[in-house]
Design a protein around this nucleic acid. Sequence first.
RNA 1: UCAACGAUGUUAUUAGA
Length: 372
Amino acid sequence: AVSWNAMIRGYAVNGHLDEAKQCFAKMPNPNSVTWTTIVAALAENGNIDDAKAMFDKMPERNVVAWTSIVAAYAQNGHLDEARELFEKMPHRNSYSWNTMISVYVQNKDLHEAKRIFDAMPGKNLVSWTPLISAYAQSGHLDEAKRLFDEMPQPDVVLWTAMIKAYAENGNITEARRTFDLMPQRNIVTWNVMLAAYCQVGLLRDATRQFEEMPERDLVSYTTVISAEAQYGRLERARALFDEMPLRDIVAWNTIIAAYSQAGNLSEARNLFEKMSTHDVVSCNIMIDAYARLGYLEEAKRELEKMPRQDVISWTTLITAYAFFGYVEEAKALFDSTPEKNLLAWNTLLEANCQHGELDDARTLFENMPEWD
RNA sequence: UCAACGAUGUUAUUAGA
């Protein structure tokens, strides 16, 4: 069973869900590990209903199974169901509690995260780290630091989170001090420091950091490529991209976005066609590449070609239509959006206001399911 | 022994500055 599980997991992490399922179907005696692997894999690919169906079919459900279905709902945006299941599960271990903490943190509900945290018995580093990050992200750097200082034995992950916390709040000096102070660093630590320099536009320091790093991975390259592009140094970005020993989809997306932002649609498209696979982000970048130059039809066609769109695909297109003055078309697109979430409502509302269609804006506003 | 939790890179909107 162990080797079967390894196979299934291998397929799952590489996105080969069908093979994973086939393997599962052929397997003589799936155990609880197998079931949980499948549930998690389904959820990661957005099949929350299938994941739940699997969970319900399980012959027995242990803490791990319960925790993964909780995480599954949360990953797919069903926060309330996640919470409900968390309350309902027969036993909770630290993984379960920690999952709930980071779920609330990801949903920017710091209060609820804190409540779970306070109620949690036997907190560990994994409980503290997301909370500290959340404080920093919401501008409460002092509180983040206070919690950090309370930790007797911070590990690399927590130290690195603290560097990020300083960097996010623009304190590059403290970020660097922390970097120098910590007992050991790993590649993520180096990358965070690298990104910190990039974010504040210290590209010289970033480049030096990049060269001094003990090793460079995909993230290191992509961080610098993106930064160079952002500061208008497209040539350098491209040179780095070409220099990469390996390129993943994020690296490709980054360089394509760089060309798009520079208005070089033909090279963006050229690279897009050279890629072996596209994900939602790649397509969104292309939609934007067309849209920002006013090629709205092409942008729309790109969206329609996508196997499935996300909020960003729609807002990109709707905003572009509105931006170029096609408010009616923007509205039509909005109406064809499968899920009208707050973001899309706001986008359209904004469009109406900008073009002086205040009556429409008011009607829209009054029909919104919620406001922020 | 294999499964579920924390730190890093790419796309839109708005806000901040």
